[in-house]
Amino acid sequence: MSEEVKTTGPLEYRTNEGQMTILGFWIFLGAEVVLFSTLFATYAVLFGRTADAPTPAELFEPGTVLIMTFLLLTSSFTCGLAVHEMRRGSVKGLTRWMLVTLVLGLGFLGFEIYEFIHYAHEGATIQSSAYWSGFFILAGTHGLHVTLGIGWAFALLHQISKRGITNVTSRKFFIISLYWHFLDVIWIFIFTSVYLIGMVL
């Protein structure tokens, strides 16, 4: 292939393939927004249909939800710092910030698992009512994305530790950073429209 390789700018954009792969990932994220919109719509339509199960206002705990939100928000910030370090060419900086990101991500997951178990004990499971089905599918799909992202990032950190920052690994890392920030975007909407509104109404 007579591919032209640029000599300036961030590594991940220097080859045509890298640039187009990142473009493709933006298209994927657009599709993810629509995927989540169907879950948000289902949740919103089923709001209040709690049958005999507890209502969200009875179960949601502001403390836990705020901790989860700050964990994910901070992890999104440190993930941005990891990309910043990558563009300065520092494998060490990238690895350090990404490990912080993943620890925060794992903390988020831990709280979410605790939360789901707590709700189940209180009598709200995915089978309890239409409302709780909608809730667990929406929050659970987001949690699944976080879990996948953590596994993906660990694998990629391993590869970067072997190969360093190249046109290919930087493209891969930039893409997972987009994915991670995107998870925070979705969480902002879950935090607001599920938890905050669930506690207001």
Partner: peptide, 18 residues
């Protein structure tokens, strides 16, 4: 553009469903 249209569709899906 991808993000804008994704969010526009999301708004239509959620508001339309409600």
């Amino acid at each position: 553009n991808m993000m804008f249209h994704g969010f526009a569709l999301a708004a239509i899906v959620v508001a339309g469903s409600l």
